[in-house]
Design a protein around this nucleic acid. Sequence first.
DNA 1: CTACTATTGATAGTAGAACAATCGAAAGCA
DNA 2: TGCTTTCGATTGTTCTACTATCAATAGTAG
Lengths: 230, 230
Amino acid sequence: MRISELSSRSGVSIATIKYYIREGLLPAGRPVAANQADYDEDHLRRLRLVRALVAERGLPVSTAADVLAVLAETGTQNGTDGTDGTDEDGAAGGEGRGVHRVLGRVFGAMDTARDRERAASEAGLTEVRRLVTAMGWRIHPRSAAVPALARALDALDQLGVRIDCRTLLPYARLAERTAEVDLDLLAAAPAGSDLAEHAVLLTVLLDPALLVLRRLAQEHHSAARQPDPT
Amino acid sequence: MRISELSSRSGVSIATIKYYIREGLLPAGRPVAANQADYDEDHLRRLRLVRALVAERGLPVSTAADVLAVLAETGTQNGTDGTDGTDEDGAAGGEGRGVHRVLGRVFGAMDTARDRERAASEAGLTEVRRLVTAMGWRIHPRSAAVPALARALDALDQLGVRIDCRTLLPYARLAERTAEVDLDLLAAAPAGSDLAEHAVLLTVLLDPALLVLRRLAQEHHSAARQPDPT
DNA sequence: CTACTATTGATAGTAGAACAATCGAAAGCA
DNA sequence: TGCTTTCGATTGTTCTACTATCAATAGTAG
């Protein structure tokens, strides 16, 4: 299809599509003449993914480019070898490992330069490591998540809200069960789909949804604890 | 104190402080002469709160201004009437109601104009309402959280990931328990502190921390399910 | 009293991000 | 043949979050 059709079917303007191609978010079309290139369904799919990351999740364009670059260089197709997507054990073997490694790299790509430039306090880092130990989590020692969490604790500490690893423990337990639901959902991915992309969708795009669920639950419980006198 | 001291003690440049005052994020100092104003510890505290919302949480300055405006017009001091902060029932009465209303308004202020402009699909809204009913949640019908969640589901749907209310149910149950932890933490707020501000800190600033916890748990479980062959 | 620095409010400028518009050349379509 | 579309490249626009400068004025050290 031509760029105008790609534009109309995705709802993204031609100028913006060209911008995304320049920034490496979208591969260029297959050039068919000096003034024409051909785009296929993969381009459309990819473009929708870009819009989900940029417009819905609110990732900076450069960060989205990093995330997509990680996805692009890994062809982790879900096997079509007779086993459907509902098997939950490690039958997929090497492919599953691939997804795990891709997810790690995606998370690494997702913390922006802005996040990295501010260092976490030593006290915060200690508290986070203590939590990881208490939960028995096996975490890559250079995982970007550790200083990110430490910085969040630092910010609260600055405002007089001291949160130690014991306070964080119930949250961590709930996060652990959330992650289990995540992986169950991922294990049920349809055959033939890109496992790594599916993983990114479920983790990155579900983030805002989970926060909203917390809001809703807070609203309910807050009302329940302080019953409306009316 | 003078503005230079406010600047050095907060680590925020004088020019930026003036900018925040212009934008209504920070009240102006008490003018003591034509070229001098006086700032106190409250200003410093408020400035640190602003930085936490803007730099740490990443809220747009205009949104942070809305949130702070809601906080400013409500003086919900935690009572110093002999009961310390560890009581968990509704002994606080009207004050608790106040916090509940403030939290609702803060959440309303937090979804930006950008969020509101895109409408959610009818199918997504139906799914969310079904979830709320299934959980037995009592939610304000015009709560901004409902269309926000619906839009997140729409985005996933566009990419071939259909998430219905049954899939969302386990997440909702975990969100409910997370909210319980939130409110327990809030009930333990120290006497004399601003309850509404405390509530905002615990919900808004804890958001990124909870997402990071999910990342850590995913990393652990992903590794555990696909054992490292080395 | 004088020189110097600090602060005030106001205004203007800057840098980056995310697009949007324009352009000449070449190609397709009627 | 004339009109439209697309190409790649360049330039322009809008918004956000600051940053810098300025004249006026006040405190401050000698």
